[in-house]
Each structure stands twice: as C-alpha cells, then as structure tokens.
C-alpha cells in the first residue's frame, strides 16, 4: 500500500515504519493468542469453579511488559536518528555537506495559499530576487539526484506540504518559515497533497512534482514552460 519511495534517504523513514508496524503486529498477535487461549481454557463449562491462583505458565505473560519496553527503546533509537537526520541538522550544514560530497542542490520557495501552492524558482542564476525568478502554480520541477531545499511559508492559514513518494510532510505556518529537504532519485511525476485542514477546498489543493534529468532540467530552466501538461509532453514522460 505504501507509495514507492524515490527519496535517497526515504529508506530511513521506511525502516521506522516497518519496525513500528511490524513490532506492533507481532505483539498484537501474541496478546490475541494468549487472550483467546485463556477464553477457551477458562470458560465456565470447562472450568466451573475459579482456580485459587493463576497457573504458573500464565504468570510468565508479564514478560510482555519487558518486551514492550525493549520494543519502545529500539523504536525510539531508530526514529530519533531518522528525525535528527532530517530535521534537527541545520539546513546550511546539510548544504555544506552536500557540496563537500560533490552533490549539487537547488532551492525553491513555497507559499501555501487557500487552495493552491506557489513555487518560486530562483531561475537560471540560482539566486532569489534577481530578474529571472519565476513562479509556478502547483508544479514543482526538480532535477534528479540533486538535493532539493524547500523554504516554506503560508499566505493565509495553516497548510501542510505532503509528498508521499519522498516520505516528507511539514506544515506551512503564516508568519513563520519552515524548512524541508529531500533528494529525489527517480524521474517521473509525483503527487503533492495538503495535509492540514485549510478550509472548504482543502481536498483539492493538489500539486505535481516533476523530477527531470539534469540536462532536461537545465534546458527547461532557461525558458520555463509554465503549464505542467506542456512540460510533460515536451520532455516525453511516461504517464
């Protein structure tokens, strides 16, 4: 059911998902088995008078508590590492590390407004505030294998940028800037949704993230086509 993960570091979040849900299923099945066993073994017809004491074997069931504690600690360690990796490290430190590793990155500003996303691109020179900046509504075009840094704010009320395929979600708050980053590794189109109730058309605040090859991206950024359909047809994406 989980959408395919195209983010280079999305596997961290997938790992935490697997641990938390997998562990939950295991402990759930064990608990269900024990309860159903007790129901059948100690029903009135089979056991007309209650025993004076709990059978010793069942006293071992209290070890489920220790299993829960261990499961909690394992879950905490992995999820804290993943959270720190994504959100606690300062943005400029991540940029420096990316540059040291020879990776390149792009920056996009995002403004969430009632019922559409505005993506502001720095244009060819990569600097904001220059004449070649341009805006796209609901379309986020990013190069493949580049780090993408999103600087987000909101124009009116709370929204939340949610791109399931890169396992990333963060609220946009009016009056504050929030930062989010990811590194897409697979070409194609991916859905963007709004995950925080923002009014009556909250459900239709959808966008498209288009991940392109590096050369196509450079070609596109020179004279940006605004309409997402044309971008798709121009750069022959498979649906």
């Amino acid at each position: 059911m989980l959408p395919v993960n195209i983010s280079a570091d999305g596997h961290l979040i997938d790992l935490v998902l697997k641990i938390s849900i997998g562990g939950g299923i295991v402990i759930g099945i064990v608990s269900f088995a024990i309860v159903l066993y007790m129901i059948f073994k100690f029903r009135r017809s089979k056991n007309p008078f209650p025993l004076q004491d709990v059978p010793p074997l069942l006293k071992k069931v209290i070890y489920i508590d220790f299993a829960m504690i261990i499961f909690d600690l394992v879950l905490l360690v992995t999820s804290s590492y993943a959270w720190a990796y994504f959100y606690i490290r300062p943005i400029d430190k991540i940029k420096k590390e990316a540059l040291q590793k020879g990776e390149k990155y792009v920056e996009v500003n995002v403004i969430g407004r009632q019922f559409f996303w505005t993506f502001i691109y720095p244009g060819e020179d990569g600097k904001f505030g220059t004449s070649d900046d341009f805006k796209l509504a609901n379309v986020l075009v990013v190069p493949k294998n580049y780090y993408v840094f999103l600087k987000m704010t909101s124009g009116d009320t709370l929204h939340s940028l949610f791109i399931p395929n890169v396992r990333m979600k963060y609220d946009t708050i009016p009056g504050r800037t929030t930062y989010v980053w990811f590194k897409p590794t697979a070409e194609g189109q991916y859905d963007i949704a709004c995950a925080e109730l923002c009014g009556s058309m909250h459900y239709s605040m959808k966008g498209i993230m288009i991940v392109m090859e590096e050369e196509k991206y450079k070609e596109w950024i020179k004279n940006p086509i605004y309409n997402s359909e044309d971008i798709i047809s121009m750069y022959e994406f498979k649906r």
Binding site: L12, I13, V16, L17, S20, I21, G23, G24, I25, I27, G28, F71, D72, L75, L76, T78, S79, S80, Y81, A82, W83, F86, S160, F162, P164, R167, M168, K169, Y170, A195, E196
Partner: peptide, 17 residues
C-alpha cells in the same frame, strides 16, 4: 499498539494527519 507508529517521531512525519 498502533499508537506507537504515531508516537515515534520519524514515522509520524509520514502518518501525521
């Protein structure tokens, strides 16, 4: 038990709302 994936902060990034 399904509260744990929401309590662990990394998986809540995906599962929130």
């Amino acid at each position: 038990l399904t509260g744990l994936p929401l309590g662990a902060v990394a998986s809540d990034i995906y599962f929130h709302d």
